[in-house]
Nucleic acid binder design. Sequence first.
DNA 1: TATGAATGAGGTTTCATTCAT
DNA 2: TATGAATGAAACCTCATTCAT
Lengths: 216, 216, 216, 216
Amino acid sequence: MVDRQDNGRPRSRRLPRAVRERQILDAAVEVFATRGFHTASMDEIAEVAGISKPMLYAYLGAKDELFVACIRREANRLIDAISVAVEAGLSPAEQLWRGLRVFFEYVSRNQAGWAVLHRQVNQGEPSVSELVEWRQRATSVIAALLAQATEESAQPMQPEQTEPFAVALVGACESLVEWWFQHPEHTADGMAMRLMNMVWMGFSDLVEGRSWTPDQ
Amino acid sequence: MVDRQDNGRPRSRRLPRAVRERQILDAAVEVFATRGFHTASMDEIAEVAGISKPMLYAYLGAKDELFVACIRREANRLIDAISVAVEAGLSPAEQLWRGLRVFFEYVSRNQAGWAVLHRQVNQGEPSVSELVEWRQRATSVIAALLAQATEESAQPMQPEQTEPFAVALVGACESLVEWWFQHPEHTADGMAMRLMNMVWMGFSDLVEGRSWTPDQ
Amino acid sequence: MVDRQDNGRPRSRRLPRAVRERQILDAAVEVFATRGFHTASMDEIAEVAGISKPMLYAYLGAKDELFVACIRREANRLIDAISVAVEAGLSPAEQLWRGLRVFFEYVSRNQAGWAVLHRQVNQGEPSVSELVEWRQRATSVIAALLAQATEESAQPMQPEQTEPFAVALVGACESLVEWWFQHPEHTADGMAMRLMNMVWMGFSDLVEGRSWTPDQ
Amino acid sequence: MVDRQDNGRPRSRRLPRAVRERQILDAAVEVFATRGFHTASMDEIAEVAGISKPMLYAYLGAKDELFVACIRREANRLIDAISVAVEAGLSPAEQLWRGLRVFFEYVSRNQAGWAVLHRQVNQGEPSVSELVEWRQRATSVIAALLAQATEESAQPMQPEQTEPFAVALVGACESLVEWWFQHPEHTADGMAMRLMNMVWMGFSDLVEGRSWTPDQ
DNA sequence: TATGAATGAGGTTTCATTCAT
DNA sequence: TATGAATGAAACCTCATTCAT
């Protein structure tokens, strides 16, 4: 005996809190990804989530907070996925390689989630800090990895010194992801390898004393 | 007898069209840079420009179009500045080096202009295409440069093959600029050198046959 | 095996109706007094009362009705307190004096209740009538008292004639209470005496034929 | 040649700022008086004013500010009207008498304005302070008048001492106004005289040493 | 009985855009 | 040409109220 008055949508009612919350976050991520933060409207999110606006507000707060919740979830998911792949005992190169591979794989399977983490917020928004923070987290991890890779070299580097390299790597990643989405014929491994070849090789050269200088 | 012609305000009237347009664009770039595209209001732009809103619309059209005009001007300025520095006869490495140096110098002197070109538009905006396009232009130039650098090597590459490297380089640049703004103790040359050391060295390795492979 | 009957919260269940109702009214009076009728939310009242909103509605109806119930209870309490003090056999002056004293005492001990009776409702609300009505009741009693005081004078007055005096007295009371709350150094007796001296003396003068006239 | 497209309303367009502002205030006072602060909607005010909501906001700000503007205007009007009548050289009694007369006259001619000044705001509103302030102003004036009246008596009083009397008088006035609106057969002079007889006589008794004491 | 979950309706506010002078 | 004045449309958010368990 199906519920009457159903007008086609299987909008389930009276769900437990956790389920609804996930439902809402899914909808919000989808809408934010498609429309961008500003252009997205709470009306549309509520509709996609299959609930009314008051519920939307009751569960996850105002638009800003909802957006922050999206970022938080997606950032955690991404970082968790990578953490699982990067085992502690491995060499830095191996760790970086695995991390990159998983990153590209994850991103291609979860494009909406990635869109929320990337290029969403203009200056002046209250939610920028959350985006900045997760990016900082990612950068720090990589900077630490790079520093560790120099430990046994002639000139060990501190994370403060490797930070700009990490920053550049993160930027290159972001940029390449966008390019990849338009050239889907490449594989995740291929993308990761590209980055290893470019950034890691250049970094190794530097560590080993081979560096580029102008006019020579 | 109402006052005409001059009521004390320095707001000049009856300027030639080109001057007015520049005035408006200056104001618009400033406001867009500070507030971001969405948060910027036409009211504020008109006020900063020292004209009334109807004039604003008459000169440069609706908000989208105005924003596109800003991007176009700033992108052209940036690319022009770089073009001047990159002389045709030089080696690819030298060209890239000069280009990067000028890029960082230009950006630090014109932060508002750069802010308009970077991280301003979320998906779903009509003006995204303009941003994508200028980024594409920059990428193409670099890709061509990289291709040219391989011409005399064992395995010459086509621009299509060097494109992902160019994309990564652009991303790394963008990312580093942001980092630089928070670490202003570094010089433009230092920033450019960092990138050369990382990307160019890695690229050279690759061209010369040294590449990174997993499992080793 | 779900926990029943007691989950740790002191929120008691299954109380007899009268107790519950008092609990709710206490909460409602407190919230209405603090926030005012409009700004008060049923959510907060339910929370303060320690019950769920559906129960709130089941026991005392919609917001308007709940508010009316509050007024009714507080008005009755106040009037009861005064009635006890005013014994029938006394002289009008003595009755008035006792009534005022008890009024000020009561009000200072029950500020929340007083706040509900005073300055809560703007015109246009459905619950105004209840407020008007209790005020009318108070006025009538005083008017009768004043009339009775004139019975043995040269010109006995009907309650219709003493009514404006009663109205003024009520207004003066309300106004003085507010002033008193900001000057708590005075005693209830002092406040009552002030009113007796002002209103009763003036009234006595009038009854005894001494009246103020302009142009003199 | 009447403007075309007129759909019946004589809504005049493109008025100078001052005129529009008065128009809006008139409408706002009317609506606030009828509905009360909370129940009044900006929609209705805009409609009554014959303008669109954005204009409403552009001219006088948010609802709070608009309400404050109403209070300020009405309070000033009332106080101005009274100030004109109360000439400086007169005796305190004469001044009070004239002030009261004008007060009642004014209020009866401007009931909406009075409603805005009286019983509009519940605790907790941001605009209370404005109401409190104007009431305070009125009280101070009266307190000073009463103090002045005692100057030549045996026991001159300071305004701090006469303040509670002033407070009571203000409350009596407010209360009587409401009663008067329901008994319009009385005249303004009659109302003022009632107050003089009650409050002034009582006060005079007190000043001259005749006071009421319990148990006697 | 008691409640967590849900919503319809309505409020305030802002902004891009355009008349009418 | 140049603008003060004006608005339609839509955004976010809250609240009193009621199902369905």
